[in-house]
Every structure is written in C-alpha cells, then in structure tokens.
Design a protein around this nucleic acid. Sequence first.
DNA 1: AACGGTAATATGTAGCTACTTAAAATGTCA
DNA 2: TGACATTTTAAGTAGCTACATATTACCGTT
Lengths: 233, 233
Amino acid sequence: MKITNRLSWKYVRDEIHHEILNGRYGPGDRLPRDADIANQLNCARSTVQRAMQDLSDIGLVERRRKGGTRVHPEPVTRATLDIPITRHEVEKKGARYGYQLIKQEEMSAPRTVLAAFELTASVSMLRIEALHLSDNRPYMLEDRWVCLDTVPEIRDVDLKLQSANEWLVLNRPYSRCDLRFYAISADQKMSEMLGAKIGDALLLIERSTWIDEAPITTVKTITTPGYQLLTSS
Amino acid sequence: MKITNRLSWKYVRDEIHHEILNGRYGPGDRLPRDADIANQLNCARSTVQRAMQDLSDIGLVERRRKGGTRVHPEPVTRATLDIPITRHEVEKKGARYGYQLIKQEEMSAPRTVLAAFELTASVSMLRIEALHLSDNRPYMLEDRWVCLDTVPEIRDVDLKLQSANEWLVLNRPYSRCDLRFYAISADQKMSEMLGAKIGDALLLIERSTWIDEAPITTVKTITTPGYQLLTSS
DNA sequence: AACGGTAATATGTAGCTACTTAAAATGTCA
DNA sequence: TGACATTTTAAGTAGCTACATATTACCGTT
C-alpha cells in the first residue's frame, strides 16, 4: 500500500512551469521563495532548487541571490542543436557514406581565418578541402583549416582514408566551440563540387574550436541545396 | 585562516573534463564509478553526481544506471541557440526598431502548415505577414500562421501596433518548439520586401510552437542577405 | 537628498543518509 | 544451449543540515 508520495523535482518543475504557462505568473513577475514553494508543495527546498535550476537553464526564469526568482522578462527561444560527425549523420539516414579528399596543403593562415580565432599574428595551418558523399552523391563540402601548432599530429594522419572531421572530433576534444550559420549563393566551384546550379542558395555552417586558449580548427561546411538543420529535442 | 578546502562540483566537473581532454579517457571508455571518483577526490558522491550530470547534459559522457559512465562514443557538437524577440534583437544592436504589418487574414490552413504541426484535419488560422525594420531598413520578413482554436484572443490584438512575434512570446508561452534552418533564394516578392536582389541567398528560420498538444503558431522568418545566426555561449 | 556602511535574506553549494530504479550480470531450468 | 528469473550494482532522487555568497534593503551620517 506504499504509494510514492514523494514528489520528484521534475514534477515540481512542471508544476511551476504550468503556473507560468497558465498565466498565473507573467514575464517579469516574481515567484515565491524556494522555501515557500517547498512548504506549499510539501517537499524539501533542495527539490525546489533543482526544479528551479532547470527552469533557469532553459531560460524560462531568472534567479539571483537575495533577488529571488522571476519569470524571464525578455523570453527567448532557446534551442539545442546537435551536430554529429558527418559520417554518422549520413549513416543514420540509411545511406552509404563516402568521402573524398580534394586538397591538402600547409600554408600560412589568411586574415579571415585568423579573425575566426581572434588571432593577430599569422600561424602555420593545414588547409583541407574535402567532399562528403551520401550514396555516392555529394552531401557536404568542407573547407577546413587546422592549426599545426596545436595539432601537429594531423600531419601524420592519412586524410585520404579518414576525414579530418572525424579524426579531429575523435582525437581532439575541444573546450570551446563557436558556431555560425548563414546562407550563400553557390559559385562556380561549389556548384561543380556539390552538383548544384550556380546561384543556388546553400546553408553554410561555420565552426571554430579551441582547446583552452589554443585554436584547433575552423571549418566551413557547405551543404547541398535543400539541406535543413533541425533542433534535437 | 579558514581556506575553502571544499571542492565545488564545477571543479570536479572540470577535473573530469580535463582527463577526457587530455586523452586519459577516449570515446567509449568507461569512467570510474561516482563513488570511487568521490573517494579519490575526497568529496561527496553527490558532488560527483552533479558534475557528471552536467557533463552528460553537454553530451560529453553517457550515463546509465548500473552501466556506469562512459565517454560518449559518437561525440556530437552540441550548441545552444538563443532566439530573442526581434525587437530586442534589433535594439540590442543599438538600432531603432520598426515594424510593418503587411497582411492579416483568417483562412483555412494549407497543407504545408498542417504538416508543420503534424495535423491532418484542416483548422482555421490567422495568417500574418509582417516586416521588421532596423533603422528603417528591412531586417526580417515574417510569414506566420496562428491557430485560432488555440489562441482566439489574437483576433482582438491590434497587430499594426505590436508584432505577433512579440505578443505571442509575451502572452503565449509554449511547451514545445521545433526549429528548422535552411537557405532559400530570394524570389520577386522577397527581394522587394527585403531590399535584396532576386536570387540572393537568404537564411530562413522556421519555428513551430505548441502548448501541450495544441498548436500555437508556425512562422517562417526570412532574413536579409548576410544575416548570421550565432551560438550564444 | 546623496552617500556609505551594515544587516537581512534568498539562492547556491557541499555533505550526509536513505531509498529507488534501471539494467547488467549471474544463475537456473528446460 | 537458450530462455527466463533473480541478484547485484551504479546511477538517480529526496530529504535534511550547515554554511557561502551575492544582493537588496535599511539606516545613519553628512
């Protein structure tokens, strides 16, 4: 006959969430103190704390010491994106993954690349161009720069066999990652590589990673026409 | 002389993170049990639990009851995007925000819109076209559908004064939000509205929201040429 | 009224215990 | 050997206490 009369913190979280959804509390409104909510719901303060922390994480409420908790006055749509290794992305769709190394050369990084890393002095990098394939059709074009100071071992990797994308993700975890999304028109070269028409609108994903303060890699991922990026949740 | 010899869970988290970054544990490797780590670092298991939970949230490790903790075997790049109310976005850049209602009409939702909500039967919706301005220049074109069953009050809102974007976000919190990003070429109408050239590549953000199971709104946000979406962190 | 120091207070964190639960590992029987 | 039941294990959760810390709020001085 022992029913679980303990409240889970998720229950508490959803309870508060509903009160906000129902309009009981609107943007900017202050919520009761954790202790009062705990008392009201007959649970421990730590349970309310966990619930509130979660609501704070998703951007629904704002919490400050002594200031209390209030509904976020400027609601934002917060979304989580998962960007997998390209090979996994293709294989998850049930397609056969393929990969072509187009170019690989050591050279000094141009200004635009240095800018992505917030660097001023020039450094030596490995430039890699590669094409990812799905069922033998072009899927993604990647234009990558790898910092040789930070990742000298990349010189010894045979990038004809394994993509730099995969090697780096598996062997060089990062501590910081900046992402940037925008649209570009396919130029002559891109259209050839991707099997698109010149002028086609393409989604471009730019990603730069660091390990602590040291730059690892920056890559422009150019997708085929019609490619869509979806949120994970 | 009382120095804080207690370890914060963030310290523990970073400690474990570093061990993964340093290659001590690679993708797929199993980490010690929480209790052992706690013992080793001389802290409580609950502290390790919090640290691990965080590492699990960012997708670095995978945890399962009895199975233990292991480094995620297929590392993903997990990013968080914040999409603010358009007016706030413009004002944060120091520009003056403007807004124009282009069209507003009640009609039955077309198939594409129903699809976004995973609906089959047709429902009555309010279609809204509007243009957001930054310093009197076009900034974003929004093409929106609002479900009148779920949000009948929208009929009484003067959308010439306040954008549906802002009214909805402030008054209609959602419990589910799907996002979709892709690139399109500007057609005749878009180019006129946004002051772009026909064929320009534009980033399109599609967003659909629900409250519980009920659809609220779906909107296509068409940005001006060169618009970039950045991660928040 | 402006300023500055101090007290009050709500959240944040750490540690402990006790119990729950999912799932892996093991054992049992056909 | 394979299918199924049982045990064991490691993470997950809840509750409590104690203390830390960031602000706000208050009060007294000028």
